[in-house]
Design a binder for these strands. Structure first.
Lengths: 344, 344
DNA sequence: TCGATTTATGCTAGCGCTATCATAAGGGCC
DNA sequence: GGCCCTTATGATAGCGCTAGCATAAATCGA
């Protein structure tokens, strides 16, 4: 394409080069870059041609300096949602790329206390324009308030509105909890088990509430609980507690796929056939569900879509536009091989 | 702490504020910020005190503008195992955080051709100072050359040196392949199977070579192969091909944990007991190995450490310092429940 | 005693943009 | 034909840093 191969590009072209090439002032080039309507069509054409010719790309740093923005969006996550990390990141990047933002990631400690300070330090240091906060981090008590105080726009993925967050992408986790209970009840299970998420994670409590309410609605059914920490070992431990009960549950709902894997592990170890003698349902619908044997029935949370919606909302906020319509993700149960009729 | 609660922080403090507070010029403050030795100890102390007092943090944007740097490091990945992604990110961030850099992630398409253009566009757009490129992306033919041409410092994680990459963090995958073969042979397996990675991924070919060489060294042993794409479905398909053979292998080595999960899945589906009738070894040593039932024997690649070493090397390069000593990761096989004596 | 060094610090011109203010052309109106 | 309004564009002051050059003060040998 380039007819002058000898021309050595000494450094990136700047807005001055474009202005010179198009025979206008940089002010006008700047107008074009910022899509200001006040530019003559012909002039705009010339400038755009020059931009293409020179392969000019405005410097994010210079632009950021002038606009007091970094064009960076931060993603806070911890190892409890590592399985869905990829879909979340892809969801965000799909949007940020075309909006001129980049995604910067920040893994944070799982302990609620440490996490808040850690996140605040990150925000100060990185100067991100905004934050996407998926669960379970979004459920950390006090985080929202801390971010609010630090004046960073943040959009959370959560089951319920969280006071303090500028925006929340909702997922119907209470309904999903009920859905799982319904599914197990329909299969004839009466003694149900719940491996819950951490007590201080709001979304986990939502799922729990939905699940327990539905069980309570059904005469003759009841549920036993064990708390987990969203990681594998705690899933194993919780399953052991439940299956050690004198009258153990025949259907167990785990608050995420990783803990559900722990339940399957315990069942296998004890020779409890799944789903013949024990049904198991996970949560998240992560790729892990397919890899397990038997394949895990799980509730699909569309993290990619939710994250994209969050990024959309966040960018709108950052740029002072009206926020897009609220997005509420509907969760669906994806049936696989770990649920079946209650043993007789 | 703050004795004047009424003082409203209208905006971030700048270097001018610090200079004023310490009674020096911004030039001197700048010297302190950049750790120049040419500053009087007492003056330095005063300035540092002022910085602490004002909670001043230099603006990355302004500093980047002046230094022509972004202080951003890019991670190109093409993820098959989100758990591995998580450890890589943690490894990098552990370093970047204290070095004043941030990590920006870029998921790239799986198709080699599309990936190169995609990565180049990302580099131009984001203006990262450097790139960390883990496998399998690092093995994409032509990527190194393209990055070289674009003049972006890049450090790859790879099994073999890759021409074009400024630096490579090596892992002994050939030796690891041999190690796996050895393990299976020692267990008495003579008919071995290999679910290989994509043909154009160098590291996969290394593992394959190491594995096959070791098998060839052993009289009476042989190996059959099936190619996979590093994802779960291809692992399933490959396992099916291998187990459909008239004389199927009794020990299978899969080039990553995810495909190994596929092998386990097929074995379960066909009622082939693991490890009684079939031994399976994975690769990566990701947390997934623990979650599977039976727990997967796998080769541990210390991705976190490797990524940290890559970041270290990259930053040294960016800052023009001499590179740290080359890092070569030793891979070890982690025995779990999927390998056992060959069936008699 | 004095210029030559060394050491410590300041002044200021960028870095590549944005956006305020000013200005220069047209165009319609009476 | 003069005046006001609209539309298109330019000159330029920052944004918050870095770093080259200049300068002032302290050190030192002869």
């Amino acid at each position: 394409m380039d007819a002058s191969p000898g021309k050595q590009r000494e450094s990136e072209p700047t807005i001055d080069d474009v202005a010179a090439a198009a025979g206008v002032s940089i002010r006008t080039v700047s107008r074009v870059l910022n899509k200001s309507p006040k530019v003559n069509a012909e002039t705009r054409r010339r400038i755009e041609a020059a931009i293409g010719e020179l392969r000019f790309r405005p410097s994010v740093r210079a632009r950021g300096l002038a606009m007091r923005r970094s064009f960076l969006i931060g993603l806070i996550h911890n190892d409890r949602n590592a399985l869905v990390l990829d879909s979340i990141q892809r969801g965000i990047v799909a949007l940020t790329a075309e909006r001129g933002y980049e995604l910067i990631v920040h893994p944070t400690p799982a302990q609620a206390g440490a996490a808040i300070d850690d996140v605040l330090a990150f925000v100060e240091r990185s100067r991100v324009d905004g934050l996407v906060v998926p669960p379970p981090v979004s459920g950390i008590p006090g985080l929202a308030a801390a971010l609010e105080k630090a004046q960073v726009p943040a959009v959370a993925l959560s089951s319920t509105p969280i006071e303090g967050f500028a925006g929340v992408i909702l997922s119907e986790e209470r309904a999903a909890g009920a859905l799982v209970a319904r599914h197990l009840l329909d299969l004839g299970h009466r003694r149900l088990g719940l491996v819950n998420g951490p007590r201080d994670v709001a979304s986990a409590q939502e799922r729990r509430a939905g699940f327990l309410e539905e069980v309570a609605r059904h005469a003759g059914a009841d549920a036993v609980e064990a708390e987990g920490e969203y990681d594998f070992p705690s899933g194993v431990a919780a399953a052991e507690r439940l299956l050690d009960l004198p009258d153990p549950p025949t259907g167990i709902f785990a608050a995420n796929d990783i803990m559900a894997a722990g339940v399957l592990k315990v069942a296998a170890r004890r020779g409890v056939a799944v789903p013949a003698r024990l049904s198991v349902v996970g949560f998240d619908g992560s790729p892990l569900t397919r890899m397990l044997t038997p394949a895990l029935t799980s509730v699909l949370r569309p993290f990619g879509d939710m994250a994209a919606a969050a990024a959309e909302q966040l960018i709108a906020r950052i740029e002072g536009r009206e926020a897009p319509p609220p997005y509420q993700a509907t969760l669906a149960i994806v049936l696989a091989e770990t649920t079946g009729p209650a043993p007789t």
